[in-house]
Design a protein around this nucleic acid. Structure first.
Lengths: 208, 208
DNA sequence: GTCTATACTTCGATAGAC
DNA sequence: GTCTATCGAAGTATAGAC
């Protein structure tokens, strides 16, 4: 006998994700989140207590799941280069399921994490930690070059976050004819980042 | 005979840069900007008209200067690889002079540019345009590989923006012992990104 | 759990004197 | 150009009935 689904909290979280991504914490409006979720505003406070608690709940869940996906790649099988490519793919796939993620990530980095509690910060830290684990294992095994982990981490993931988050602004620039470029799908972009990482992390010079 | 310097507008712009970077447009407070600039709030409105006009003025100036720096590299002398490295260095140097830039850039991308007028968007578009020019020239001359310009652009600049913007959050994570890493200076980071780009844009396989 | 009505606060912006 | 005082809108949050 299935438990009755807590539709309200889940709908509120989904609505909050969209609103916070579009407007940021300060720009988000509780009324708008409630309306998007088709619940009464009082219900939102009943379930989450405050705007900030809602925000933290959303981010903690999201970060934890992202870290979980990368952690699964890290503890799975495969060579170092394959795991790096797998981590990039997993991260990109996660983002594409949760289109709100890049914008929120960008905003939270800009904010310096000032609004996050310890638990949420810990969830966020799980993302780089999983990636660093892959790098360390590969270096120990000798199939990855020992670059500084932060360099590899930011080289691999930040272009993806940025590229996907910048989609609206690219549209806008394209529409006003300020720039013209051959289209590039997200999948192509991700593949190219994987290739670039493979090259820059290869332990020995290699043929292209 | 030197014109009297318009200290108020300049001080207001500097204060606005800090405030907008820390809190975003919606989170920024006009009162706080005025206080930081040590001017009366009415003066701020006298000079800039509205919070949004102030914001746009700041971003237009900043984007235009960033584009100008990259444009100078693009139209200057040097091989393709040297110009790419030069553009990365110029961009990093610009950011380090204007510490507020990464956070504002991140926020504006997250925002989808929705708050920018046409002129400010045009200024922003000058940044990738200069970078694309360097790439096209190098490809035509045969000393750069023809990767998609967007991939090169995001690979080169977004890690730098992210790394520098994430400094506060790294401090916080480090302080709460959630992660431990050997330090990495901004200069080292930039140099490594230059190296990675040199590798991934080399027209032929090369020794490391 | 759900809703209406509203208290309380903050903030952008301006009026108007100097 | 500069300042004080304040308006009016908008926003978070809650009280209290059902």
């Amino acid at each position: 006998m299935p438990r009755p689904p807590r539709v309200s909290p889940d709908r509120i979280l989904a609505a909050a994700a969209a609103e916070f991504a579009e407007r940021g914490f300060a720009g988000a409006r509780v009324d708008r989140i409630a309306r998007r979720a088709r619940v009464n505003k009082a219900m939102l406070y009943y379930h989450f207590g405050s705007k900030q608690a809602l925000y933290r709940t959303l981010l903690r869940q999201t970060f934890a799941e992202a870290a979980g996906r990368l952690g699964a790649v890290a503890s799975g099988p495969g060579t170092g280069p394959a795991k790096v490519a797998g981590a990039i793919a997993a991260f990109a796939a996660f983002i594409q399921e949760r289109a709100f993620f890049p914008a929120i990530m960008l905003r939270e980095v800009a904010e310096g994490g000032s609004r996050l509690d310890r638990e949420t910060l810990a969830a966020l830290a799980g993302v780089p930690r999983a990636f660093f684990g892959i790098l360390a294992e590969g270096v120990a095994r000798g199939d990855l070059r020992a670059v500084h982990p932060l360099v590899a981490y930011f080289s691999a993931l930040s272009p993806i976050v940025f590229f996907l988050a910048a989609d609206p602004i690219r549209q806008e620039l394209g529409n006003t004819h300020l720039t013209k470029l051959r289209g590039l799908t997200s999948d192509e972009f991700v593949r190219q980042i994987q290739d670039a990482m493979r090259l820059s992390l290869a332990p020995h010079p290699q043929k292209r």
